[in-house]
Every structure is written in C-alpha cells, then in structure tokens.
C-alpha cells in the first residue's frame, strides 16, 4: 500500500541508506550537536540575572527549560535548503526528479537518519549537563515524553516545510537560499531558544504567538520539561501551520519542477 508514494519497503530502504550515510559523517554531526550549546550559555546568564523572576520558571524549572530547548533544537534542526542547493548545483537533482518518489521524501529521510546519528551525542551533552546540575535531573512521565516527542516532530515538520518553501523558490532564483538567513534571525530570537517566551513583554508575546517560531522551540521544550502549558492550543497551532504550509509547498514545488524541466536545465 502506498501513502504519499511511500510503502514500507521504500521507507525502510530510504531510512536505512540515509542512516548509513549519516554515520559516515558522525564527527561532523558531533560538532553540529556541540554547536547547539547556545541555550546553555543563555541559561547561565538567566540564572544569575535580576530579570529571572519575570520568567515564571523557578528553581530547576529554568534549568529544565533550557535543557529541553537544547534537545528540541537538536531534533528539529533542518538543513534541507543547503542540501538541496548542493544537489541542484552538482546536477544530482535531475535524476531525483525522474524517480517515482517525491524528492522531498529523500530529504526527510536524510534528516531522520541524521537525527538518529545525533542521538548519542545529544544524550552525551545532556549527561554532562546533569553531572554539573544534578538537582535538575528529571524523568518525564511516559505520556509527557510521548507528547513532547510528537511536539518536537511537529516542530521539525514546520521547520522542514518552511525550508522546503525556500528551496522551491530556488527553482526561480539561484540565490533564494539567502532568504534562509532572513528566516533564521527571527527564529533565533523569537523561538524561545535564547529566552523563554514568557520573558518578552506581553505585547510582543501576543504578537509572536501568531508566528510559527514559538512552536518550534518554546512549546515543545515546555512540554518536555513538564511546565504547565496549554497543550490543546500548542498542538492546534502546530497543526495549523503544517496545514497551511504543506499545500503551499506542494503547489510551489510542482510549479518549480515544471519550470525547471521546461528550461531543460
């Protein structure tokens, strides 16, 4: 049975080969994992600052929030647009387009393979964190963990779709990847990676909630760390963003491919 052009065999073959491929790059991926330490630097700042009281995260809650933010980021990092650009540049795209499988699935599989490779490194960094801050250690309930897992995957889906949107634009302009930089900046400051959303003034918070950014880090991180959070509203927003972006990406991608093949490039 095929769903979105996928069946069990294709999924297994794709994931297996991409995981094997990513294992080749484990040193590189370890460095990527390490480059995600920003939440810990911000944690050390927030912990000692006068402004801490306004965060609504007391005691170990702050430690847990930033560790969760780190973990969520580790498993929702998307670099699809760069891989796509390289494939387009090296002429690998044309054979992909000929295959009876949507090329986006290939990128999804390579991200999942990379996440699996990343897992031990991320766990290692979390382990070091607990050695330094043993009082922050916690084990989320099974239900909480599953919810956090889903929320993280939804965050990954939104981020992936956003980048796919930019990648589709590459069919029109070869420099569309520069747009990724413009998308990354608001993500960096507004997603909750550097400061929990509750740190922002209420007006900013209200406005930010209408962007996809807080659902990429802040919401999944709060679910994982066990903070009281409006689950229904969070998941609804995530679903809404996926529902909005998915058709947009598919339409734009199809138009882009048509243009690409019309140009005969």
């Amino acid at each position: 049975m095929r769903i979105f052009g996928l069946n069990r065999r294709i999924v297994r073959a794709l994931l297996g080969s991409q995981y094997a491929h990513m294992l080749e790059y484990r040193a590189e991926i370890a460095l990527w994992a390490l480059s995600g330490v920003l939440p810990f630097i911000m944690l050390s700042l927030w912990s000692g600052s006068d402004a801490r009281s306004q965060l609504g995260l007391d005691g170990v809650a702050l430690d847990r929030y930033f560790l969760s933010a780190f973990l969520v980021r580790q498993f929702s990092v998307v670099w699809m647009v760069y891989a796509f650009e390289e494939d387009a540049l090296l002429g690998r795209l044309s054979p992909y387009l000929l295959q009876p499988l949507h090329p986006l699935w290939r990128y999804v599989a390579s991200h999942l393979g990379e996440q699996l490779t990343r897992l031990p490194f991320a766990a290692g960094i979390a382990g070091v964190f607990f050695l330094i801050q043993p009082q922050a250690f916690w084990i989320p309930s099974l239900g909480g963990f599953l919810l956090a897992w889903i929320a993280t995957w939804m965050a990954f889906a939104i981020a992936f779709l956003l980048q796919s949107l930019i990648a589709s634009l590459c069919f029109w302009s070869e420099k569309a990847t520069a747009l990724e930089r413009l998308l990354f900046l608001p993500f960096l400051f507004l997603s909750g990676l550097l400061a929990p959303l509750t740190a922002f003034p209420p007006a900013v918070q209200a406005w930010v909630r209408w962007t996809p950014f807080p659902y990429l880090i802040d919401f999944p991180a709060r679910v994982l760390s066990g903070d009281p959070v409006d689950l229904a509203a969070g998941f609804a927003a995530q679903l809404a963003w996926v529902g909005l972006l998915l058709p947009l990406v598919l339409v734009l991608w199809r138009a882009g491919v048509r243009r690409y093949s019309a140009m005969g490039a």
């Binding site: 700042l45 600052s49 006068d50 402004a51 306004q54 520069a178 747009l179 930089r181 413009l182 900046l185 608001p186 960096l188 400051f189 507004l190 550097l194 400061a195 740190a199 922002f200 900013v204």
Partner: peptide, 27 residues
C-alpha cells in the same frame, strides 16, 4: 539581503538584551 539581515540581527540582539533590564535591574 545581507543588509536586511544586519538590521534584523541588531534589532533582535537589542530586544533580547532589553529583556534582562528593567526598572532597577542590572546585568
């Protein structure tokens, strides 16, 4: 795009920095 990124980045940094401050608060 780079110029726009510079402005966005500085704006974001200032916003983030301002979160640490407030009446009678220091960093």
């Amino acid at each position: 795009v780079e110029l726009l990124a510079v402005v966005l980045s500085l704006g974001g940094s200032l916003l983030l920095l301002s979160l640490f401050f407030g009446p009678g608060r220091e960093l």
